[in-house]
Design a protein around this nucleic acid. Structure first.
Lengths: 347, 347
DNA sequence: ATGAAAGCGCTAACAT
DNA sequence: ATGTTAGCGCTTTCAT
C-alpha cells in the first residue's frame, strides 16, 4: 500500500487539497481537474487510508459488537439484524466473540477502545450478571456510548433493548396450566442471571395466580448450555412424580432437554409437554413442533443500532433509554396435555 | 477520548518520547520515571490510539475474514477456528458477512483495504465460482495477501486450504453401494460451483467403478440453501422409481432433504438411506443419526491463519501454497439398506 | 536516561 | 478553483 494521496497529486499535477476534494466530493473542483485526478487514482489503483482519515477527522465510523457466542443461533440472528443496520448507516462493524468469558469480554472492550470505536453494542456474558465491580468500572470508564442488548448489567444504567422475560415466562406457564398441567417443571439459568431470575419469576407468578403450590423440586438450574439442559432434563425425567410438562428457558437448553426426552424414548407431547423460551427452528423441520416464546431478535438488533446512532449524533442526550419488548407466545402443539401423558401420571 | 500521549507527558513531567517508551517497553526508562508515567496513565484513564499507532508504524495488525453466512453452522465453526488463531497471534479480526452476495463481498474487500488490513481470509461466495473477470481483478489487485478457505476462485492461484471433495463424495457413495444400494440419488450444488462439481464427480466415479450406470434423473442441483435441498428432495421422493438412498452435498441441503423426508412420513434409513456431506450435529441430539463426510473446519481455520501469518512474515515467499485436507467418512447407520426399503423397492 | 523533531496519510482552515 | 499549511496521536531516529 505504498501509494498515497501525495502520489496521486504528483501524477495528476495538482495539490493534495484538490485530490482530497475530489475524494470527498467537497468544495469546488473543475470537471477537467476531477477527471485527471480520477484517472490517476485508477491508474495507480489507489484506495484512501481509513486510518489516516480517522486520525484527522477524529471519527472512525466503527461500531463494536460483543456477543457471547456466534455459534448460538440466537446470537446469530441478533448479529444479522445489527450488522444490516450498521451497514445501512455506513458504519463498519468489529464483531467480537466473548466466548461466555469475562476476561475475553474485557479484552475485547480494550481492543475496541484502542481502535477508537464510536459505540459498542453488548450482549453481556451471562456470567457477568453477578455483581462485579471491576467489570462495571471497566464498562463505565470506557468513555464510549454503550447499548445493551438482551442482557442487563447489574447496578448499571446503560441504554438498552431488553425482552420482558417475566411476561414471556408467565404466558408460557399460563398456557401449560390452561392445558390442565399441574406439575410443571422449569429449566432455567443460574440465579445470578437476570433473565434466568425473571423467567423463573414469571413461572412462579403463573403458578401462584392459579393457586398451584410452588415445588422447588420442579425447578432446575442450568447455565444456558446444551449440556446443562440435557442433565437437568435427565434428572427431571427420572423424578418419581415427574412433571407432566416442562418449560425450558433458552435455545440450547431446550435442545438438550429434547435430547434427553428422546433418549428416554419419550415423545412430545404424548409423554411430556414442553414450551421453550426461544424458537428452535431446526426442530420444526424435523417434524417436531415446539411451542415457544418468541423474541424478535432481528428487531432488537435494529433498535439497538438506532439507539446507538441517535446517541452518537445528539451528544447531549443524558437520559437513559431502555426499551423492553414484549415477547410473543407461539403455540403449536407441544404444550398439549395428551391423554397418554395424563394416564401415565394418574396411575 | 480527549486524553492523548501529550497529556500523559505533561502530567508526569516527561517528554512524549519517554511516555512512548514505557508504553512500548522499548529503550531505557528509569524505574522511577516509569512509575510516574504509569500513574499518570491510570489517573487519566488513558488508552493509546491504535489508529495513530497504525499510521506511524504502517502496521494495523488487522486480518479480515469474509464468510458467506455467519448463521450457517458450517461457517460458524470455521470462524471459531480462525478467530482463536488470530487472537493467539495478537492480531485483530474484522469479520464480514458477505451474505452469499458478490456485491457485498466486493464492498467488504474495499472496506478491508481502506482499513489497511494486513491479510484476508476468504470463503468465496459460491456464486463467485463462475468466471467473473471483474471480481477476479478486484481480488488480484487488492495488494493484500489472501488465503482461501474451503472454496476456490476460478482461474486464480491464491494460497488456500481446501477439502478433497472428490474423495469425500466418492467414499460416501462407495459406502452406499457397499450396502447394496444401486439407485442412489445426489443433491449437489450448481455446477458453476467447484465443490459441487467435485462432489458430483466423486459420486460418478464411485458408480462407474462399480459398474452402475449413471442416471441423470437421479442428479439434482440445489444451491446450498435449505429450501433448495427441500425442493430437490421432494422431487426425488416422488420419482416413480425413486432411489433407495440419497447423498446430500451440504449442511443446509441435508436439513432440507430431511424435512422433505419427514414430511412424506418416511424414516431414515427404514424408507430411504442418506449420507450427508458435512455433519449435522443437531440431528443426533434428536435421535436421528446421520452418516456424514466430516470436514475438520476448525482445523482448516487454524491452517488458514497460519498460512497467512507465514505469508506476512516472510515477504519473499512467492510460491503458492495450497493444502487439501482429506475429509473423513463417519458412518452411523443412516446409510443402511433396510429390509423395509428393499421390499418397497423390489415390488 | 531523556528530549526534540520529523513524519506516517489525510483533512480543513486559510490564502490566493 | 486551487494551493499552502497546520495539525490529528503516535513512533523513531538523532542529539544530548
Amino acid at each position: 500500500m505504498a501509494v498515497t494521496i501525495r502520489d496521486i497529486a504528483k501524477r495528476s499535477g495538482v495539490s493534495l487539497a484538490t485530490v482530497s476534494r475530489v475524494l470527498n466530493d467537497s468544495g469546488y473542483v473543475k470537471d477537467e481537474t476531477r477527471k485527471k485526478v480520477m484517472d490517476a487514482i485508477k491508474e495507480l489503483n489507489y484506495t484512501p487510508s481509513a486510518i489516516a482519515r480517522s486520525l484527522t477527522k477524529k471519527k472512525t465510523n466503527i461500531i463494536g459488537v460483543l456477543v457471547p457466542d456466534i455459534n448460538n443461533p440466537y446470537f446469530g440472528e441478533l448479529i444479522k439484524g445489527i450488522s444490516n443496520s450498521i451497514d445501512e448507516a455506513n458504519f463498519n462493524m468489529i464483531l467480537c466473540d466473548t466466548d461466555e468469558n469475562m476476561k475475553k469480554e474485557v479484552k475485547a472492550l480494550k481492543l475496541l477502545r484502542e481502535q477508537r470505536s464510536e459505540g459498542i453494542i453488548i450482549t453481556p456474558t451471562s456470567a457477568e450478571d453477578t455483581f462485579n465491580s471491576e467489570y462495571l468500572s471497566v464498562l463505565e470508564n470506557l468513555g464510549i456510548p454503550i447499548v445493551l442488548v438482551a442482557g442487563d448489567v447489574k447496578y448499571s444504567s446503560f441504554n438498552g433493548v431488553f425482552v420482558d422475560n417475566i411476561k414471556g415466562a408467565f404466558e408460557a406457564t399460563q398456557a401449560l396450566i390452561k392445558e390442565g398441567h399441574q406439575k410443571i417443571g422449569i429449566i432455567t439459568g443460574r440465579l445470578n442471571s437476570k433473565p434466568a431470575k425473571d423467567r423463573l419469576m414469571g413461572y412462579k407468578k403463573a403458578l401462584t395466580i392459579n393457586d398451584i403450590p410452588i415445588d422447588e423440586k420442579n425447578i432446575y438450574y442450568g447455565d444456558y448450555r446444551l449440556e446443562s439442559g440435557y442433565k437437568c432434563a435427565k434428572q427431571l425425567l427420572k423424578m418419581e412424580n415427574r412433571p407432566t410438562a416442562v418449560f425450558t428457558c433458552g435455545y440450547l437448553m431446550t435442545l438438550g432437554t429434547i435430547k434427553a426426552i428422546y433418549e428416554e424414548g419419550m415423545k412430545i407431547p404424548e409423554d411430556i409437554s414442553l414450551i421453550s423460551f426461544d424458537k428452535v427452528e431446526v426442530l420444526s423441520m424435523l417434524g417436531q413442533n415446539i411451542s415457544y416464546v418468541a423474541e424478535d431478535t432481528v428487531e432488537m438488533g435494529k433498535i439497538a443500532v438506532k439507539m446507538l446512532l441517535d446517541n452518537l449524533s445528539s451528544k447531549e442526550s443524558e437520559e437513559v433509554k431502555r426499551i423492553t419488548l414484549a415477547p410473543k407466545l407461539v403455540l403449536n402443539g407441544s404444550e398439549k396435555y395428551a391423554s397418554k401423558n395424563r394416564k401415565i401420571n394418574n396411575i
